[in-house]
């Protein structure tokens, strides 16, 4: 049997709808809610049923042509994974190194990953950019940007 994009999507949403419906059953109800026409579980149950019906509908009407098969050739998944990991690291760096340093490191690493190798370019773009954004936010707009735990531990705060 040929597995196309529609089949994969249908199966994924069918599983999601079943799981969603299963967890909808664990939503806490107030005493006496069972006699009410509308509770916190009403919409989730309706959505679970609707989602399952539509998923089955997609599975039954799925296109079976070769061009509808999921082809992953030509996509740069490794680079995307690295960029997403970089975003996660940026989130962690914001807490530890503070906004300005985290921004500089994020931009330098981002430029590098996407193929920019000139050190001068890496520094000349990221450093002024990070400093000016920090200045606009912290000084002009008066937004409090925490200095980062590392800074606090070294210099106290």
């Amino acid at each position: 049997m040929m597995l196309t994009k529609d089949h994969i999507g249908g199966l994924v949403f069918l599983c999601l709808s079943v799981l969603y419906g299963y967890y909808a059953g664990s939503i806490h109800m107030l005493p006496g809610d069972e006699f009410e026409p509308f509770t916190a579980r009403t919409v989730p149950y309706a959505l679970a049923i609707l989602g399952a019906v539509l998923s089955v509908g997609l599975l039954l009407t799925a296109k079976r042509s070769v061009e509808n098969r999921l082809s992953l050739n030509g996509y740069d998944f490794a680079l995307v994974a690295k960029l997403l990991l970089l975003i996660v690291c940026f989130g962690l760096a914001l807490e530890w190194t503070g906004f300005m340093l985290a921004t500089m490191l994020f931009l330098i690493a981002g430029f590098w990953m996407l193929g920019e190798r000139r050190i001068k370019m890496l520094l000349l773009v990221s450093v002024p950019f990070a400093v000016s954004i920090w200045f606009i936010l912290a000084k002009l707009l008066d937004i409090y940007l925490a200095p980062g735990q590392l800074y606090m531990q070294i210099f106290g705060g």
Binding site: G9, F13, L16, S17, Y20, Y23, A24, I27, H28, M29, L30, D33, F38, T39, A40, V43, P44, L47, L50, G51, L54, S55, L58
Partner: peptide, 24 residues
């Protein structure tokens, strides 16, 4: 339509405004 239902499902995450119950 599946995506619409998916969006509606995401909207149910958090505290229910009518009953105050937490969901998902």
């Amino acid at each position: 339509l599946i995506m619409t239902v998916f969006g509606l499902m995401i909207a149910t995450i958090g505290t229910d405004t009518t009953s105050g119950a937490t969901r998902f």
